[in-house]
Computed example of a mutant assay.
Amino acid sequence: MSATQVPGPGANVAARRKELGLSQVTLARRAGVSVSLLSKIEVGDRALTQGVGAALARAMNLTLDELLGSAPEANLNDLNWAIRRFDIPGEPPEHPENLQREVDELNQLRWNTELSKVLLRLPGILTRVTNHAHLTGEPKAWGLVADVYGVIYWLAARHRWMHLAELATLKQRMAAERADPIAAIVAARDDAGTFLNSGDFSGGLAVIDRAIVQAESTLTGQDRAFGLGVLHLRGLTLAGRLKDKQTTQKHIDAAWRMAEEIPEEIAKHGMQFGPEQTATHVISTASDMEQHRSAVETGESLIRAGMTLPANRVAPVYMNLGRSQLALGDQEGTLESLERAWATSPEMAAVHPTSLELTRVLVSKHKRSNERLTKIAQRAGITL
Rank of each mutant, 00 (worst) to 15 (best):
V35H: 14
S23L: 01
R313L: 00
L109P: 09
L228W: 09
E297Y: 06
L384Q: 11
S294N: 11
Q222R: 10
G32L: 04
Q100H: 15
V207R: 01
R17C: 10
A156F: 01
E73W: 12
S202C: 12
A54R: 00
T278I: 10
F226H: 05
G270R: 02
N312K: 09
L76T: 12
V151L: 06
V282Y: 03
L122H: 07
A54Y: 10
L122G: 01
D223W: 10
M289W: 05
A57E: 07
G51W: 03
K243A: 13
E371D: 15
K243C: 10
L27G: 04
T63I: 02
Y318M: 05
G8P: 07
V6Y: 10
R360N: 06
H366L: 13
G124E: 13
S287R: 12
A350H: 06
R173S: 04
I376H: 09
G21Y: 09
G221Q: 06
K367Q: 15
R160P: 01
L242T: 04
H132W: 13
D244S: 11
A165T: 02
T334Y: 07
S23D: 14
T237K: 04
R368D: 14
Q24K: 08
E261F: 13
H132Q: 11
G124C: 15
L356G: 00
W161Q: 08
L122V: 06
L373S: 08
G322W: 02
A14T: 13
I185Q: 08
T298D: 04
T308C: 11
R178F: 00
E265P: 14
R46W: 06
I182N: 12
Y318I: 04
L68H: 05
T127V: 12
L358A: 04
A14S: 14
A3W: 14
K117L: 08
R173E: 01
A343Q: 14
L228P: 07
F195P: 00
L135Q: 11
N12D: 11
A305F: 15
L309D: 09
G193I: 00
T237M: 08
S364W: 01
T130E: 00
Y318P: 06
A133E: 05
H132V: 09
E297F: 11
A206F: 14
A11L: 09
G44S: 05
A188M: 09
G229I: 02
I252R: 15
N370H: 13
I152G: 04
L358R: 03
L236S: 01
V52R: 04
D180G: 01
P310R: 13
L62P: 09
W111P: 15
L56A: 03
L328P: 08
A315P: 07
S294Q: 15
R84V: 04
W256V: 12
Q222G: 08
G221S: 05
E332R: 08
A311S: 02
E300T: 14
S2E: 14
